[in-house]
């Protein structure tokens, strides 16, 4: 088991390196840098001015070198001019004496996440604040989505073809067919607009960042949860129906076990193995939902900074975002693998 986790972690690190490198390359393509220079300087900059701005700020180096610096595997760049020394690890322009005091390496490995050109702030602090907001959102999404999906799936799969099955399956198909930007719009239209007039909830969740209440927070949570719920419910149903036709369920039935004991003692554990993996693999999808919902409800979390960073080619912020999301995705994959082994005694090697 230890060896397995070790190997998986190795693969994870490799994946994370590859992905961040791809992001790095894409954000450092020439037209992107040019755009960055113009947004940071001014929009009527000449080509030479763009070039010199890029060189002054360390963007002129080869991509691999820049990546190494960002990672912290290569020493950060420095540039000495008459006013003093500028560099990756130096804030602003410093006299030479003080510049020598600065660390040579300042990448991710040293904990240096860099500086956001969009928000003019430390990437690390932006990420931590926004991730907190999103984490809270996700927490409630999971609290609503997972239990209801499992219950719907189990109830539907318990008796295949029954009325309960058909009605619940219809519901879950309907929710999987409704992406967040559709369900969100419909929910907002029904529950917040003055035309329909219900006005039960608020159409924006901006105030929820400071003070989340049922009124301003329920709709975004529900919007994300609905889309994921149908999918998990269908997986659970499929797994449950399969288990219910398994021979060992017949054995239990013909042993005289009562129906609810068959479900609870015999079927449930076997039926939950597959959905567990699915729930964990849902995280990359949930991330999409978060971006859409945060845009839709104007909730400033992780998804919102993703949109902002990508729209402004804020390289270091984008990289930090990809690191975080890739780590989230990979960690959930790891958990899903371990959980699978744990739930399924057939795999566990004695």
């Amino acid at each position: 088991m230890g060896l397995f986790i070790l190997r998986r972690s190795g693969v994870m690190i490799l994946t994370a390196l590859c992905l961040t490198f791809i992001v790095f390359v894409l954000t450092n393509l020439e037209p992107n840098l040019e755009k960055l220079a113009k947004t940071q300087g001014n929009f009527r900059m000449s080509d030479e001015a763009v070039n010199s701005w890029l060189n002054n700020n360390g963007y002129g180096q080869p991509t691999v070198v820049k990546y190494g610096q960002w990672l912290g595997a290569l020493p950060g760049w420095t540039r000495t001019t008459e006013e003093g020394v500028t560099g990756r690890c130096i804030t602003g322009t410093q006299p030479e004496s003080e510049a020598d005091q600065a660390a040579r390496f300042c990448g991710i490995l040293q904990g240096g996440w860099g500086y956001s050109t969009r928000f003019k702030d430390d990437v690390a602090s932006i990420i931590s604040v926004r991730l907190g907001n999103t984490g809270y959102l996700m927490l409630w999404v999971l609290v609503i989505m997972v239990p209801s999906a499992l219950i719907i799936g189990v109830l539907a799969g318990m008796r295949e073809g029954s009325v309960t099955d058909r009605s619940l399956s219809t519901v879950s198909i309907l929710t999987t067919a409704t992406p967040e930007y559709v369900s969100g719009v419909i929910l907002i239209a029904i529950f917040t607009s003055s035309t329909v007039g219900l006005k039960w909830f608020k159409g924006t969740a901006t105030s929820a960042m400071e003070n989340p209440t049922f009124e301003n927070f329920f709709l975004p949570v529900l919007t994300i949860a609905l889309y994921g719920m149908g999918y998990i419910a269908r997986m659970t149903r499929a797994s449950m129906t399969e288990v219910m036709t398994a021979q060992y369920i017949r054995t239990a039935r013909l042993k005289g076990v009562s129906f609810h004991n068959i479900i609870l003692k015999h079927a449930l554990r076997n039926a939950l193995i597959a959905p567990f993996t699915v729930i964990m693999l849902q995280f990359p999808w949930l991330l999409n939902g978060v971006v859409i919902v945060e845009t839709l409800f104007n909730y400033k979390g992780f998804g919102w900074i993703l949109v902002e960073a990508a729209g402004n080619n804020d390289i270091e912020l984008l990289l930090a975002i990809s690191v975080v999301s890739v780590v989230v995705v990979l960690v959930t994959q790891l958990i899903s693998d371990i959980g699978y082994v744990y739930l399924n005694p057939r795999i566990r090697i004695s």
Binding site: Q247, R253, S258, P345
Partner: peptide, 22 residues
């Protein structure tokens, strides 16, 4: 239900499949 497993019991073809794996 009282009769099944108590008065009449059954043995099946596939032993692996008829035992609960978990």
């Amino acid at each position: 239900r009282d009769i099944r497993g108590n008065e009449i019991a059954m043995i099946y073809q596939e032993p692996m499949a008829s035992l609960n794996p978990a």
